[in-house]
Structure formats: structure tokens, C-alpha cells
Computed example of a mutant assay.
Amino acid sequence: MTPRLRRSVRAIVLDEDDRILLCRFVFPHPAVPGQATCVWAAPGGGIEPGEDRLTALRRELREETGLTVTADPPHVWHQEIVAADHAPGFDGIVNDYFLLRVRHFQPRGDLTDDELAAENLAEFRWWRLPEIVGYAGTDLFSPRDLATPLTALLTTGTPTQPVHLGL
């Protein structure tokens, strides 16, 4: 039997100082495992019926951050996790990550604060790589070892094929 996977798109949004924009999702969001209270993840979300990945990415970024994406950004990472406890109602998830280089901005999308809260999105924050590498708090990152693929992306540039990520 083929696993039923939640398909999502995410944006690696980097500003001119190589800071990455992350969203803090709180339980019970699909990105937050049951044993955690929150996860810092790239903005984005589920692909709705009838949408392709880039259409979904454009919608999610406009709704969450206010970014308008006109060009087709490069597909840099692919993550597939088959685990029944990872996304309620699904057998796992698929996240496809696209790279966006932008000027620093204050995220403010089409969704109201109440609508963001209903999606369990609590806040946005720009992170520097050393902050992620040295983070000692209880929050998780998605992917868990975000520092490794982010370091590679910042040092070697855009990959020719999406890099496959683990949990």
C-alpha cells in the first residue's frame, strides 16, 4: 500500500546578510512532533488540490509573509519522512524547499494574526547561521539538522539537483 503523505512547499528565504527567515510553529501543527512544543521551520505549507508546487509556494508566501514571487525559484532541498506520527491524518510528509534571495523585510502577509494563530504559526524571526549552529534551547528546527544543509547552501551555492534531507 502506498503511504499517504502530506505534500508541502517551503521557502529558504535569505536576505542580503545571509539571514534565514523562519516561522515558529506551535503544537499541534504538522511540523511539530508530539513531544515538542514548537518547531522553527521555513515559511510555506500544504499544497492544495489542483495546485502545483510553485503555485502553492507563491500562495503560502503571500499569505504568511507578504512576499510576491514572480520568477521560478530554484528547487534546492527535498525531504520525505514516512512516519505515522509525523503529520496527523497522514503516513508522513514531503517538503520541497525553494531558494529565495530577498532584501531584508518585516514579514506581514495577507493572513491576520488570528488566522496565523489558527494555523499554529506563532512568530517570524530572521536567524544567522551561527545562531542556529549554537542554539541550545528546547525548540526544534525543521529539518532537525538545519545547520548542515544551510551551511552547504551558503558556502557552495545552489545545487544542480535538490539535496535530499533527513528528518
Rank of each mutant, 00 (worst) to 15 (best):
R144F: 13
R10F: 10
R4A: 14
P30E: 04
L14P: 10
A122N: 08
D15N: 14
G46P: 05
H164I: 14
L99S: 09
P30Y: 14
T37G: 11
P159M: 09
G44T: 04
P3N: 09
T158I: 15
P33R: 03
V163D: 01
W127R: 06
V69H: 00
W40M: 10
T55D: 01
T148D: 14
H75R: 05
E48M: 09
A118L: 10
H75S: 05
T55Q: 05
D15F: 09
L5Q: 02
A36H: 15
T112Q: 03
V163S: 13
L153R: 00
P143I: 07
V94Q: 09
A36P: 11
I93M: 12
R58S: 00
V76G: 04
A83E: 15
L22P: 10
R7D: 09
T2S: 14
V82D: 06
L165I: 11
D72A: 15
G66W: 00
E48H: 09
P107M: 09
T148G: 08
F105T: 05
A152N: 07
G166F: 05
T55R: 12
Q161A: 15
T151W: 12
P107G: 06
D114T: 15
L99A: 11
R7A: 13
T70K: 03
V133L: 11
P43M: 06
F27L: 14
T68G: 06
S142P: 00
T156Y: 06
R108A: 15
H86N: 09
Y135N: 02
L21C: 13
M1C: 12
L61M: 07
P43K: 05
T151H: 13
A71P: 00
R125E: 05
A147V: 11
A56W: 04
L99K: 07
T112A: 08
V76T: 11
L54S: 03
A36V: 12
G134F: 09
R6W: 04
I132E: 03
I132F: 07
P28I: 13
P162G: 08
Y135G: 03
E51F: 02
T55F: 08
V163K: 08
G45D: 00
T155K: 13
L61A: 02
L116T: 06
L111P: 02
Q35A: 12
F141H: 07
T156H: 14
S142D: 13
H75D: 00
R4N: 13
L167C: 12
L150G: 11
P30D: 03
L129K: 04
L111Y: 10
F90E: 02
A11K: 10
D96R: 03
E16S: 14
R144S: 13
E63G: 01
L165V: 11
V102M: 06
G92F: 10
G109C: 03
A41L: 10
E60I: 00
A42T: 12
